[in-house]
Amino acid sequence: MLGFQAGHYPLADGESVLDCLLRHQQPVPYSCKAGLCQSCLVQAVDCQPPALATRGLKATLQSSGHAMACQWHPDSDVCVRLPDNQALSVQGHIVGLQQLNAVVMKLVVQADDPTALAECHPGQYLNLVNSAGTIRSYSVANDCRQHGRAEFHIAATAQGLFSHWLFNAASLGDVLQMRGPAGSCFYVADADQQQPLLLVGVGTGLAPLYAIVNDALAQGHQGPILLVHGASSTASLYYRAELRALAASHSKFSYSALVRAGAADADCQQGDAAESALALLAALPVAQTRVYLCGNAAFVHNLRKLVFMRGVRSANIFCDPFVERATQSN
């Protein structure tokens, strides 16, 4: 039996806390259902969530009994409640809304408390909650630790709840709650600074990579830094001028864009981003190379396997798959 708020719901054999609550039409937010996005956080009441359901959560969340409902398959009676939004999140206001191309919006949020994001490594993600209560994960594209001002790149998604709100209804001054940070896809300076870094992203997968590249350069990374950005066409690329300027001023950094269709030029070719990344990898010492993969979940999953099979160490592969909302009939 699953206790939730005032009610009690029978758990089916092997069912997750989240699925049980959704089956009983209870209002629990969720998105990826894969133990990644952390949208479906619940707080345990007088019971201990299993380790799998707390994996990747901040220590403070773990010690206060928080867990991901989608990863919790109880084998005895448990009781949970919705977490206290106030205690969990940081409030901010929208201070920037700028379309980077036809399908990508740059969103800038200033935390009301400028120190509130001091622990957010560039490239980690935050869960944004809008006034309608929709929660989605977005990667931070800049270093927001000092000023609490976080930049996001958000792709328009057909019939997407959050992105539709952002492109059509959001305006400067709107309040957003931010939960997090989370994720382990960021630059670590205590590793070997001579290692080559190969960063590959498709679409708005560029957001965390842009943050990671800038962070690596700021922390004085010594080895080569190779960025590959894939998109469907030149019209859906963005930040080309910024990346070219960065490459011009840092000899160890190089940038190339791959598009499936459209004209080629000096740093943009027609082709497949994964193939291009594997070609670059072939010229690097694979056992030393650190690889960052971000964006579309299927793309990340595939390329992760390919770079691993080519000899990149699993400990040197950092991924940020943008897992979409799982389909569910409600």
């Binding site: 894969a34 133990g35 999953h301 691993f308 099979m309 699993s314 798959p321």
Partner: peptide, 28 residues
């Protein structure tokens, strides 16, 4: 051993499907 073993398992079409889940960290 873990990377060497996992690479062999993933590269074996007879059994790779069991180990090819989205969450590779968990698999490791």
């Amino acid at each position: 051993a873990v990377d060497i073993f996992y690479r062999k398992v993933l590269g074996d079409p007879l059994i790779s499907k069991f180990f090819d889940s989205v969450d590779m960290d968990r698999q490791t």
